[in-house]
């Protein structure tokens, strides 16, 4: 569904991603893990069109989408939950959801479905998004993206800044999306959380993809363990 070849992108003189290649097949949940500053967000932004790529190709269903305006992708069901959620904090929950459906003519129906999935948001309907708790904000961010009816959903660090219980709930939602046929490309620093839900994982290290594999395989890879899972991991896991 999504195919990236030799993608390079960056800011000014600084190149952040040095020729990354990856692919996401229909119905898959693919993770991209890496440390802070590895270039994960830049890569996502390049896919969305928020950051113009310098080289390489990005194809969605075989059609090149590199350098196309962002709204074009959104209209074709390529939807991003941005880093740090980026809610419209001064606007109400209702307006945030309506904005999610900006390019979706069936937004009313999509909002009704999102509210059935996240009933908490119905209670908060007229409240400014900035006054919600962290967990509710993440739910709103995901619900807002779902209102756009994504076929490919890009998630940028959905676990960031959330309590462990909320992280669990967020990943339950992601697992649910798969059952509904949404393809997900997930960027995470929290490798353990990402391993629990993904079919395949790429490891990004300072702008290069250094590894690819099934979560189970990566889990037992000593290098991954050292870099992303921490020393105490073994004791917790076994």
């Amino acid at each position: 569904m999504l195919r990236i070849r030799n993608l390079r992108c960056g800011y000014g003189n600084l190149e952040v991603v040095h020729g990354a290649s990856l692919h996401v097949e229909r119905g898959e949940i693919v993770g991209l893990i890496g440390a802070n500053g590895a270039g994960k967000t830049s890569l996502l932004n390049a896919i969305m069109g928020l950051l113009p790529p310098r080289e390489g190709s990005i194809e969605l269903d075989g059609v090149s989408i590199a350098r196309q305006p962002v709204w074009h992708g959104v209209a074709h069901s390529l939807v991003l939950v941005p880093e740090g959620r980026q809610l419209f904090s001064a606007m109400t929950v209702a307006d945030n959801l309506l904005m999610g459906g900006y390019r979706n003519p069936d937004r009313d129906q999509a909002i009704a479905q999102a509210l059935d999935r996240f009933p908490r948001l119905r209670e908060r309907w007229r409240q400014p998004a900035g006054t919600l708790s962290g967990g509710e904000q993440q739910m709103l961010a995901i619900a807002r993206a779902l209102v756009a009816r994504p076929r490919l959903l890009l998630l940028d660090e959905p676990s960031m800044g959330l309590a462990p219980l909320m992280v669990k709930e967020v990943f339950e939602v992601i697992a649910e999306l798969r059952r509904k046929g949404v393809t997900v490309f997930l960027v995470e620093q929290n490798a353990m959380a990402a391993f629990g839900v993904t079919d395949r994982v790429y490891v990004l290290e300072t702008g290069d993809i250094v590894m690819e594999g099934r979560p189970d395989d990566l889990l037992h890879n000593p290098e991954v363990k050292r870099a992303y899972l921490g020393k105490g991991f073994r004791n917790v896991w076994e």
């Binding site: 928020l50 709204w71 419209f88 904090s89 606007m91 900006y102 390019r103």
Partner: peptide, 18 residues
């Protein structure tokens, strides 16, 4: 609504397809 969303967060407004 889209105008207000730009005021709030231009990046997010773009990501919504504005």
């Amino acid at each position: 609504r889209a105008l207000r969303s730009i005021h709030d967060s231009e990046t997010a407004a773009k990501a919504m397809g504005v």
